[in-house]
Structure formats: C-alpha cells, structure tokens
Computed example of a mutant assay.
Amino acid sequence: MIHQSVEHNNLELGKQLFQSMPDRDVVSWNSMIGGFARIGQYQEALTWFHEMEFSGVSPNALTLLSTLSACASHGALDTGAWIHAYVDKNDMNRDGSLDSSLIDMYSKCGDIDKAVQIFEESTRRDLFTWTSIVCGLAMHGRGEKALHYFSKMKEAQVQPDDVTMVGVLSACAHAGLLDQGWWYFQSMEKVFGLVPKVEHYGGMVDLLGRMGCLKEAYDLIMGMPMEANEIIWGAFLSACRVHNNVELGEVAARRLLGLVPRDPWARVMLSNMYAEEAKWDRSMGLRKEIKKKGLKKSPGCSSIEVNGSVHGFLVGDNSHPCYTEINSMVEKIEKLMRL
C-alpha cells in the first residue's frame, strides 16, 4: 500500500501508512526514499535515508541507487562519498552494478576526477557506465576527453543510445568541434540506428550558436521534424545575444514569447541587444513592458553542503534560520577584501 501511494504521488498517505507500521523493513524504507527522489524532493529523500540509518535498518542496493540519484541531483557530495565508502566497506558492489550511479553522482557533484577514477577501475563497462563518463566529462567542459572515451566505447562494440549522443554533441560544443559535431549528428541514424530527437537538435543548435553559425542554426531549427521547444529557442536567443545579431534575435524572442509569454528573460535579452545597438526606444519599451506586466525573473540560487545537509540560498531571501550570522560573516569578508 505504501508503494502504491508513493507511485501515485500521494506521499502524505504513504507517510501515514509508514508511521503506522509496527515493523519497518528495508522495502518500506525504499518505497519512501525512492518516492521522494522520483518527484524531485531530493533533500527529503536524503533525510529519510539518514533516518533509516538511525533506525538500524541496513540499506540494500536499491536503497543506494535511489539515494545516489538524490545526491547527484541535489549536489550532496559528502553524503554521496559516505555512501561510496559504505558500499566499499560492506562489499556491496562486487558486480559493478553501482558504478554508473557513482560516476553520475561524482560528476554532477563536481568531482569529475573521482568519476574518471571509478570508471577506470570498473570491471562492468556497459552502456550505462560508458554513457555516465561521456556525459560527465562533457558536463565539465572536457569535450576532447569525452570524445576519447566515446571512441573507446565504440572500440568496445558498445552501442550508444540517445543519452550518450546528447553527451557527445555537448562534448563537441564545449570543445568547439563543429565538423565533428555535424558528423556525429548526421550519422546518428545511418551509423547508430538512432533517430535524432529534440534534445539532439538542441545540442546542434548550441554547437552552431557557440561557433557563431547563426544562419545555419536557424535553418536547422526551421527544418526540424518536430516543433522546437523553449529550450532550443532560448539557446538560439543566447547565441544571438553573444554575437549581437539583432535580426535573428528578434525572431528567436518572438518564438520564445509565443511559448512562454510570461517569462521576462526573452524581453531582457532583446532589450540588452537593442541597447548595444543604441536603439534606446526599443530597449526602454521592453523594460517598461516588463514592469507594466509585473514580470519578474526567477531569483538566482546557490547551495552548499554542510555536515551532510544541503542549504539553498535565493537572491533576496532572508528566511534561512542562520540568516543574521551568515549576513554578518559576509560583511566581515567584504571588509577584509577591501584591506
């Protein structure tokens, strides 16, 4: 019943059923931890994992998979490293089934060198392990090394999937490898048997945009077999902003506003482009429109992990229980920096 409640996103009922149980085994704990991780409540998933520790119930492989996923998505490196140590101490990864999750966790938490180390020591180099290291390296801007591992993946005769190819195109974008990126994109279907999806078109738009090939990027978008989403038009608008192509920027902004009319970001970007071209009337017109419609950008967010707990901070937010102490320390640091 707990599993069914969690599967249908009724976590409150799941909590009530769990708390009413006289004996809570690893299966019931896994249902709760996995449920919170699945719906994106990663901090809650980690909290339940710590409670499971204190209860004396030992985690199994499924528990660790769910918790590592939560650590990766939440940036909880300390907790992820503790889980890794727990796995090694209890010899829970003999078959290498946790390798891809560990690589993914370390990559997303910022320790790409540790991710590479785990891959090199892995005896189970399947599709998921290869994909994790390729995407991890691409995420960290190490495009050429990611492509090196992709070449070794092909030598090992492991067939890539859609996710692998997203990582490959991202690697080409970070390394500035335009011709190679085009080749991989155009060969997806005939060489790897994969039909390019919207994510792959997005990767090519990003690559073309970074290289300043805005006309080619626009032609690619207009020739897509599916409708371009806000991510693709947003990437294209960003490229237009970087290379200050107002004409195509206007097109991208119109398309983006058609998809997300209440998002002020497109207006801000276009306003900045107008300002650089000294088109002050148009620039101020967009700023006034933002103010008139009461549009607000999503506040910037950062986070830090302290003693296994991840603390998030939003711009302008003073709700943190240690706000006064944090603000006082920031002021002290600013004074020291002025000396």
Rank of each mutant, 00 (worst) to 15 (best):
I133P: 02
I133A: 02
I133D: 02
V134L: 08
V134H: 08
V134K: 06
C135G: 12
L137M: 04
A138G: 08
M139K: 05
M139W: 00
E144P: 00
Y149F: 15
Y149E: 04
F150G: 11
F150S: 09
S151K: 15
K152M: 14
K152H: 14
K152S: 14
K152F: 12
M153T: 10
K154V: 14
A156K: 06
P160L: 08
D161C: 05
V163A: 13
T164R: 13
T164L: 06
T164V: 13
T164H: 06
A171D: 02
A171W: 06
C172D: 02
A173P: 03
H174K: 12
H174Q: 14
A175T: 05
L177Y: 05
G181Y: 00
W182S: 01
W182Y: 13
W183I: 01
Y184I: 05
Q186E: 11
K190E: 14
F192L: 06
F192Y: 15
G193K: 04
L194R: 07
L194M: 13
V195E: 15
V195D: 13
V195R: 15
P196L: 09
P196T: 02
K197G: 15
V198K: 14
V198Y: 02
D206R: 09
L208F: 08
G209H: 11
G209D: 12
R210Y: 08
R210F: 03
M211F: 04
L214H: 06
K215E: 07
E216H: 01
L220K: 04
M222D: 13
M222F: 00
M222S: 13
P225I: 12
P225V: 10
M226E: 09
E227T: 06
N229Q: 11
N229M: 11
